Amino acid sequence: MAVDNRQNSSRPRRGPKKATPERLEKSALFYLERFASSSENLRRVLMRRVEASAKEHGTDREEGARFIDSLIERYQRAGLLDDAAYAEARVTSLHRRGLSDRAIAMKLRQKGVPAELIDRSLEALREEHRADGADANREAAMNYARRRRIGPFRQTARQENRDRDLAALGRQGFDYETARRIVDAETETEL
């Protein structure tokens, strides 16, 4: 039988540390070392710290928000935060994973990227693929199908799983025609 050591430890659980400007800046730099981030996403991460500190230590939320805003402006001027570069890199990465334009836009909106940057990044991706004579959305659907072994990438029971495969592509944001082409293709070269 497994014993949960957290409940049996003699040390009390530590609460959040007080959100001082120094701690917030260290937290921001540590976060940016590990993750690419939009300005709004970093603001949310740091505000969660301020909120926790306000509940535990009575930290002034307004003062914390003002410091975070000035910190983000400083990081933008220094080039540590660049929403346009973040959007372009994230669009490319998510496209390679097999996400549709709609799914990519939704994920970027969740991270607080402005709509005009999302549109500009998606259009740049489409232009890049048009120059190569390819359809970006169809290529993303193929990437997803390859990764999930759908359509021509499924080895057995293709007909039995046809509806399930169509639904999986639909949930990823691909239109019915694209999903049908992928699922009904006999070979990868047909696509």
Results as ranks from 00 to 15, higher is better:
F35Q: 11
L191T: 04
A103H: 10
A105D: 09
D83V: 04
F30N: 09
L24G: 04
Y86W: 11
R90E: 15
A134L: 15
A145R: 02
A136T: 06
K18D: 02
P114S: 09
A141Y: 05
I118C: 09
A136R: 09
V50H: 02
G79T: 11
R158Q: 11
A124F: 00
A87M: 11
R49P: 02
G151S: 10
L80H: 08
D83S: 06
D83T: 08
S27F: 12
R181Y: 01
N161V: 10
M47F: 13
R66F: 04
G151N: 08
M142R: 13
S38D: 10
L24S: 05
M106S: 12
T187N: 04
R48F: 03
L71H: 04
R48E: 15
G112Q: 07
M142E: 03
L24A: 04
G173Y: 07
R66P: 07
L81D: 03
Q159F: 06
R180K: 10
D132V: 01
F153P: 05
A136N: 05
D184N: 14
R147G: 01
F174E: 02
F35C: 06
V3I: 15
V50W: 03
A145Y: 02
R11Y: 05
D175T: 11
K26R: 15
A115S: 13
I72V: 09
D175I: 06
L42K: 06
D101W: 03
M47H: 06
D184A: 05
R147Y: 02
R149G: 00
I118P: 11
F30H: 05
R6D: 11
I150L: 12
I150V: 14
F153S: 04
R180V: 03
R6N: 14
P16T: 15
E22Q: 12
G173S: 11
D175C: 03
S37Y: 05
D132G: 05
R66I: 01
E56M: 10
A84M: 06
R126I: 01
S10D: 10
L117Q: 13
D175R: 09
